[in-house]
Nucleic acid binder design. Structure first.
Length: 461
DNA sequence: GTAGGGTTAG
């Protein structure tokens, strides 16, 4: 006869494998249930999104066992993962005794759903914060593209004595630096990682994050150095290096590395192929790109997703093979999205191909998109072909739908400052003379704002 | 034996 702990272990095993029905079967058959049995079962339903069942078990949980914090927290997480924040919040508010996990569950619930001001309000309010609280907030800022806020929060985190950042914290911070192309801050984080003896080749994938950061900051040499010094490589580190070479225009090197990866016996995944396809696109390697695209499913059993088709279409489109690119779009098992149609429309403009562009227009208008870029492109294609009536009709459509073209922007880091540029923007008057020169040399872009680094002393320490 | 944080293209 199994004891209750063994029953619970097996139930948890099923739950972790996503087999809630089997778990429930055991739960119903077990001779005696305790608090942990109920918690595991409720957590299983909540985690798999079966919230109505979770709720009914939650309501039926015997008073003698009593609902514990674990059960409440599972319900909060379950609702939050489904985006049902008011329901999650109701459990959070109603629970008799919240612990730090309850606060963190609610905060990450807000963060996952892009509600950073709500997350921040709770974060500021909570009685004490641990590394998970801080990391949830930092990753929340990263996920909502608020990279400076993420770095700023890390500075504040270092001021609090009783909490130490860990590998998970670093991954989000490196992502921030990568997105901002903030090399100096990225280097500082690298030094921090070394100083705190964090491992680059653990399951936390710090190595991949570092390679990614250096590559996105344009330091291919540093990225390669980190990559080559890793004592153990996993698919993420290979991916980061292959993509890193690709985005820096080193197409042949990227393809070579992909070949090296295959020889090493490492198993590529969907992101690996994305990287190598991108390399082919950048390098104009049409034949190889086709080959790798085909290889995905027949040699590796990876079904191409929209983003892979996107690379293929981009590759063919840039090479002027617009009919074949259109064919690729037609062969997709899924409905083409705005991005992929837009990529091919862009190619149609460059290669002045009106027939393909017109056929794509039909698909495009079906999507009823709010994305201005593609409308503008289409209008430009018509204009380039001298079809002014069609061009202005598209422009009218844009106005009617109330779509505004968002200007493109970019940023760079200089002496620890992050500069942001927005095309056509003239709002910033205090442009230093040397920056003006840079801006002038780099074309029709104007300085928008100069962002001082947060707590400069930290980055320089 | 049950609950909370993660990055990978443009």
């Amino acid at each position: 006869m199994l004891d209750v702990v063994s029953w619970n272990t097996i139930i948890d095993g099923y739950v972790k494998a996503g087999l809630t029905t089997s778990a429930r079967h055991l739960f119903d058959r077990m001779p005696a249930r305790n608090e942990v049995s109920w918690s595991a079962m409720i957590g299983g339903y909540a985690g798999s999104g079966e919230l109505d069942v979770a709720q009914s078990l939650f309501d039926r949980m015997p008073a003698s066992v009593g609902r514990n914090a674990v059960t409440w927290n599972s319900m909060i997480t379950g609702f939050a993962k489904q985006g049902l924040l008011p329901l999650a919040r109701k459990f959070f508010d109603d629970m008799p005794e919240r612990n730090i996990v309850s606060w963190n569950a609610m905060i990450s619930g807000y963060a996952l759903n892009g509600k950073m001001s709500s997350a921040r309000a709770l974060f500021d309010e909570m009685p004490e914060r641990d590394v998970v609280s801080w990391s949830s907030m930092i990753s929340g800022y990263v996920q909502s593209n608020h990279y400076r806020e993420a770095l700023e929060l890390f500075n504040q985190m270092q001021l609090s004595r009783n909490v130490r950042p860990n590998e998970v914290t670093m991954v989000s911070l490196l992502s921030s630096c990568a997105h901002l192309a903030a090399l100096e801050q990225g280097k500082w984080i690298h030094a921090y990682i070394d100083r705190n003896k964090m491992r680059l080749d653990s399951d936390d994938n710090l190595g991949a994050s570092l390679v990614d950061m250096y590559a996105k900051c344009g330091c291919v040499d540093s990225a390669v150095k980190v990559f080559r010094n890793l004592s153990h490589r996993n698919v993420s580190t290979w991916n980061a290096m292959i993509s890193g070479l690709a985005i820096n225009g080193l197409a042949d090197e990227s393809v070579d590395l992909f070949e090296e990866m295959q020889r090493s016996g490492a198993k590529p995944n969907d992101i690996t192929f994305l990287g190598v396809l991108m390399a082919c696109t950048h390098g104009g390697l049409v034949d190889q790109g086709r080959k790798y695209f085909a290889m995905m499913s027949y040699a590796h059993g990876i079904e191409p997703q929209m983003k892979h088709y996107g690379c293929l279409v981009d590759l063919l489109g840039r090479a002027g093979m617009l009919e074949e690119a259109e064919e690729a779009i037609r062969s997709m098992p899924m409905k083409p999205d705005v991005m992929i149609l837009g990529a091919l429309l862009g190619a149609c403009r460059i290669h002045r191909n009106v027939p393909v562009a017109e056929r794509l227009t039909v698909d495009f208008l079906e999507l009823n998109s709010q994305e201005a870029g593609c409308h503008v492109l289409l209008s430009n294609i018509y204009a380039a072909a001298g079809r002014w009536a069609d061009a202005s009709q598209i422009r009218r459509l844009l106005r009617r739908r109330g779509i505004k073209k968002v200007p493109g922007s970019s940023s760079l880091e200089l002496d620890g400052n992050i500069y942001e540029f927005v095309s056509g923007d003239r709002s910033h008057q205090k442009t230093p003379r040397y920056m003006t020169c840079w801006i002038k040399r780099s074309g029709n872009r104007h300085l928008k704002g100069v962002h001082q680094p947060q707590k400069k002393s930290y980055w320089m320490k």
